[in-house]
Design a protein around this nucleic acid. Structure first.
Lengths: 152, 152
DNA sequence: CTCCTATGGTTTGATGTCGAACTATTTAAT
DNA sequence: ATTAAATAGTTCGACATCAAACCATAGGAG
């Protein structure tokens, strides 16, 4: 029963990755259209991390938390810091490292983003319902986790 | 039973979009690491379209087929054409339009990409199995379709 | 102690992507 | 027929992202 034509397996993977790509595209641009001028999903994600977990983190820890390269994190932090949304200080205990923390302005920006996001989420829930999301979450989490573990 | 705390609904959506974003990220970079030098997922997707469906298409049709802007399609076509993988000619019946078609070199490149992709797909199937993909496909397709219909 | 490797960050160059502004052509409206 | 609105493509500027190359510091092997 679990035996399958290899071609159809490949096709299944293709289709899933294709849907995933399109959804990622559509959702991130929908997000960014309602966000304050200049705020991107990548930047919001950093603020969200600090609002939920607090504390100070090294850029490389943020990079692995979000599955991006250190170069990408450098770039995003270099956009957040001039706006005063995060502050970055040298790590006393490690001459190479730096430590990032959110500022009050960053918290205010995050709150504003959440406020603007609410109507969009309501709209999506009204149009699609929670069913498909509930059904997709567990398999997606498994795919993500194993895919992540494979990148070695 | 279907009644839910609105906060948990928002959280569900957040999580699904988050998983989707990470999977899109990981899968596309995994794809591009095994592809021939200079080939990207975006470019492969165009070649794949023509190999499967044949014919000639206008850039704007390709753009809507792949849910990207015309500007994005212009950019991708401007990378494929100099490499000789597609050819672009004026549309006789419409002075504004242009028509894109794949070339023999494009077909050869596509075949090479498929050949290189096979081991990666095998690896993914071996590590994850088809189960989570089969489970995710239908809900993802529904989310994608309705999200797509909302962008108006 | 000295050297070699590992780790943290940055820079550079390339690609994909968007939105906005622009040109050219087509179609519809009056 | 003239004009206004829609459509096809392009260009530009910004951002996210990666890989590769690079600098600095830390840690371990002898």
């Amino acid at each position: 029963m679990t035996r399958q034509d290899p071609a159809s397996d490949a096709d299944l993977l293709f289709r899933v990755f294709n849907e995933v790509g399109i959804i990622a595209q559509l959702s991130s641009t929908a997000f960014e259209r309602v966000m304050p001028e200049g705020m991107t999903l990548a930047q919001f994600t950093i603020l969200n991390h600090f609002v939920r977990l607090g504390g100070r983190k090294r850029p490389s820890d943020l990079a692995s938390a979000f599955q991006v390269t250190r170069a990408t994190m450098t770039s995003t932090l270099q956009r957040l810091e001039p706006k005063g949304l995060v502050e970055i200080v040298a790590d006393e205990s490690d001459g190479r490292g730096r430590l990032v923390a959110i500022t009050d302005a960053g918290r205010a920006m995050h709150a504003d983003c959440l406020r603007r996001l609410a109507p969009l989420l309501d709209d999506i829930l009204a149009q699609i319902g929670r069913g498909p999301f509930a059904a997709a979450l567990a398999p997606l989490a498994e795919i993500r986790e194993k895919l992540d573990r494979m990148r070695d």
